[in-house]
């Protein structure tokens, strides 16, 4: 029994009939082209699927599409504005905050959440704030640098 939903993703509204069991992450990935949101685990530990749901970071593998009905989702594809990278994206690039890139979309959106609450975080704050996101490549160090760098860039704006 499918259920109609209307979910706005990166500013565009999508009306779909979905199975209630469909996870939000699969809804997003099946829209066509929006595959930046990743699935890295089964148990909501890795954070690769992190998106912003009405501006708030959530793990889209632990949310049903029907729960997001009427909501606005921002994925990694929606972070840059008119072709200009978000300062977090620039910072991850500048500070070599990624290697294989698989955790990166989730990591950037989790960092977005972190800076929303704490625009001037210490390294310890950043490390604590990213505890829900796993990266196997970087050892986190350059991610911490990137978030700190982005915080500075955002403060200058």
């Amino acid at each position: 029994m499918k259920v109609p939903v209307n979910i706005t993703v990166n500013g565009r509204s999508y009306q779909r009939d979905v199975e209630p069991r469909q996870l939000l992450v699969h809804f997003i990935r099946d829209l066509g082209g929006l595959t930046g949101t990743k699935v890295g685990c089964d148990t909501s530990q890795c954070g690769s699927c992190t998106v912003l749901l009405d501006g708030v970071a959530v793990k889209s593998c632990s949310c049903l599409a029907v729960q997001a009905d009427g909501a606005a989702v921002t994925t990694i594809e929606g972070l840059a504005e008119q072709g200009t990278l978000h300062p977090l994206q620039e910072a991850f690039w500048d500070k070599h905050g990624l290697q294989c890139g698989f955790c990166t979309p989730g990591m950037i959106l989790a960092s977005h959440e972190l800076l929303r609450h704490n625009p001037d975080p210490s390294d310890a704050d950043i490390r604590h704030g990213l505890e829900g996101n796993l990266c196997r490549c970087t050892g986190y160090q350059n991610i911490v640098r990137a978030v700190r760098h982005a915080a500075d860039a955002l403060a200058e704006k």
Binding site: L53, V58, K59, C63, G129, G132
Partner: peptide, 9 residues
Amino acid sequence: IGDPAVRNR
């Protein structure tokens, strides 16, 4: 509890 994204939800 959990992590920031979990706590949001």
